[in-house]
Measured scan of single mutants.
Amino acid sequence: MASQGTKRSYEQMETDGERQNATEIRASVGKMIDGIGRFYIQMCTELKLSDYEGRLIQNSLTIERMVLSAFDERRNKYLEEHPSAGKDPKKTGGPIYKRVDRKWMRELVLYDKEEIRRIWRQANNGDDATAGLTHMMIWHSNLNDTTYQRTRALVRTGMDPRMCSLMQGSTLPRRSGAAGAAVKGVGTMVMELIRMIKRGINDRNFWRGENGRKTRSAYERMCNILKGKFQTAAQRAMMDQVRESRNPGNAEIEDLIFLARSALILRGSVAHKSCLPACVYGPAVASGYDFEKEGYSLVGIDPFKLLQNSQVYSLIRPNENPAHKSQLVWMACNSAAFEDLRVLSFIRGTKVSPRGKLSTRGVQIASNENMDAMESSTLELRSRYWAIRTRSGGNTNQQRASAGQISVQPAFSVQRNLPFDKPTIMAAFTGNTEGRTSDMRAEIIRMMEGAKPEEMSFQGRGVFELSDERAANPIVPSFDMSNEGSYFFGDNAEEYDN
C-alpha cells in the first residue's frame, strides 16, 4: 500500500510504541512475548500442572481467558453494579484439565481477579502490559475465525453469508486497541457500523446529549479505520460520505453494504499476525530463551520457528480426527482463516481442507461434555516452508469459486491468482447506482469489472525454506488448481455463540 510509510507498523501498534527502528520493534515485541511466557509459567505453578498438562491447549485457553477477564475493567465495573446470582464479580476462573488415573478430569478453578492481575503485572515488570493482553485477544479471535462461520451475524446486519472472507476479527472485544483495529476485516468494521446506525434509528437519543457526542466521535473513528483499509480513492470518498452524514440511517447502511461487497474484489488491507497460545510461549521462556534479547516478529519467520520446536497437546472428542484438529489450530496460529487453501497447503506441506470436510468441533470443551471418553493427542503445528504475512489485500483475480465463501483475504505475501467468483459478486451490483453516491458507485463498479483474471497478485513473492531466515531465496510455489480455494466452501461450520 502506498501510504505504508505514514502508518505505524503493526509491531508498533502491538507494543504501543512511538516510531521505533526494526531492532527496537523486535525487542519490544519480544518483551511482550516474554511477559506472556513468564505469566503462563507462574500460572502453571499456581495450578500445580504437570509439564504435559501445561502444554494442553484447553488449559492455555482457560488461563488466557482468566487474565483477560481480570483486566476487563468495563465488564468488571458492570458486574459490580449489576450483581447477578451466583456470579462473584471479583473472581474469575474456568475449567482446568488434569490427568488422573490414566483419565482426563475437569476441575473448575476460581481465583481472585486481583490475584491474577498481581501475577500478570509481576510477570511483566510491574506494568499492565496491555500489548500482551491484546495479543491474547487476537489469538482467540484468530481461533474463532478458523472455527466458526459468522453466517447468522452477517444475515442479521443485512449482509450476504458468502462475504465471510471479510469477517476477520469479528469476535475481537471493543477494547483491543490499535492492534485489534489493524486485524479487523472490512466486513467486521461494516458490521460494527451498521449495528451502531441501527441503534440510532431505533433509539432517538442515541446521537443526542453528552453521551451522543461520545457516540458520534466513536462512529467517526470507526469510519476512519474502515476508510484506511480501502485502497481505492472511490471507496475512500464513499467512506467520507458515510462519516460526514448528519443523521446516519438506511442510506448509510446501503452504502456500507455496497462497500463491503466491493471489497470482495477491490480488497481492503487487513493486517495478519501470528499470535500463538500462551502454552507455546511459556515452555520456550522456561527453556531459557530470551525473546527480548533475541527479538521477535509476528509477521516473519519467528512464529514458524517457534511452532517448529513446540509440543502442544489437545483434548480430542471420541469421533474427532486429531489431524483435522491440528489443521484448525495451525490455521489459527498463522492467522489464515480466509487465505486461499492452495497457498496454505503449499506452505504447510500437507493438504489443507475446507472447514466442512474437517471432523472436528471447536477447541474448547463445553462444561456439560462427558470427560470419560476424552483422549488427548499432539497437535501437528509444523510447516514445510515459511512466508511473510501481508497486510495488503493483493490485486484481484477471477477463479472458480464456491457456493460458500466467494473470495479470499490473503494472509501471506505469496504470488498467486486470487480466487473470487466474479459473476456471483457482480450480480449483486445491478441497477442500484442512484442517489448521492452514484458517481462513486459507478466508478467502483467500473474498477471491479476491469479486474483481470490473468493478473498475478504479489508478483514474484515466494515462500522460503525454514533454514532461509533472511528470506534470501524465494520459492514461487505451484498450486494444484483442481483443489478448492475457499475454506468455508459450501460450508456447515458451527455458528459462533458468545
Rank of each mutant, 00 (worst) to 15 (best):
D340M: 11
Q459K: 03
L256W: 08
S245N: 12
F346I: 15
G94Y: 10
R102L: 15
W207V: 07
D290N: 01
I475R: 01
I96N: 10
A442P: 04
R221C: 12
I253L: 02
R121A: 00
A263N: 13
E18K: 06
M191F: 10
D34W: 09
A403G: 02
F230G: 03
E11T: 02
A233R: 01
H82W: 03
E443S: 12
A153M: 07
F346D: 15
T433C: 00
F464P: 00
A251D: 05
V67T: 02
L315T: 13
N498E: 15
W120S: 04
L259E: 08
M440F: 00
N368T: 15
N309A: 00
R216D: 07
T215C: 03
D240P: 12
V463Q: 09
Q459F: 01
N319Y: 14
T350P: 06
N473H: 02
F258Y: 06
E484M: 11
Y281T: 09
R102A: 15
S269T: 14
D16R: 09
W139S: 01
N498Q: 06
E495G: 13
M167S: 04
Q405A: 02
M448I: 08
F206E: 13
F429R: 05
A411N: 09
G450W: 01
K31G: 02
A233E: 05
E469H: 02
I257D: 12
Q327A: 14
N224H: 00
L47W: 10
S482N: 15
K293L: 02
S377Q: 02
N125M: 05
E46I: 02
I41E: 15
L143C: 10
I406R: 15
I96Y: 08
E115T: 12
F291R: 04
A442G: 03
K357R: 04
M456S: 09
E252V: 14
R162P: 04
F458V: 12
V476R: 09
L344P: 14
G169Y: 02
I116F: 15
A260G: 05
T130S: 14
R117H: 02
S3Y: 02
N202V: 02
T378C: 04
D128V: 06
N334I: 01
S345L: 02
R74H: 00
M105H: 00
P83N: 00
N432Q: 00
G158K: 10
P95Q: 07
S297N: 15
A336L: 15
L276A: 13
A182D: 06
N417A: 01
L110Y: 10
R342M: 14
L328K: 03
P410V: 09
R389Q: 11
T45H: 00
F420I: 15
N211L: 15
T45Y: 09
A271P: 12
E369S: 04
N224L: 10
D255N: 15
M239K: 04
V270F: 08
E443G: 04
G268R: 09
Y219A: 07
I96E: 03
M448Q: 12
A493V: 15
G362N: 11
D497T: 15
L307T: 08
A237V: 09
R446I: 06
L79I: 13
R74F: 05
E53C: 03
D421N: 05
R436E: 06
S438Y: 01
M159C: 06
V183C: 01
V270I: 05
K77V: 00
E115Y: 11
S467F: 00
D16I: 08
L47D: 10
N21F: 07
D101W: 09
S353R: 01
N370I: 14
G169I: 04
I33K: 13
N144F: 13
P89H: 03
P453R: 00
R150P: 07
L315K: 04
N202S: 07
T15W: 10
L307E: 13
A27T: 02
F206D: 14
K214H: 15
F489M: 10
R118E: 10
V100H: 00
G94C: 10
I194R: 14
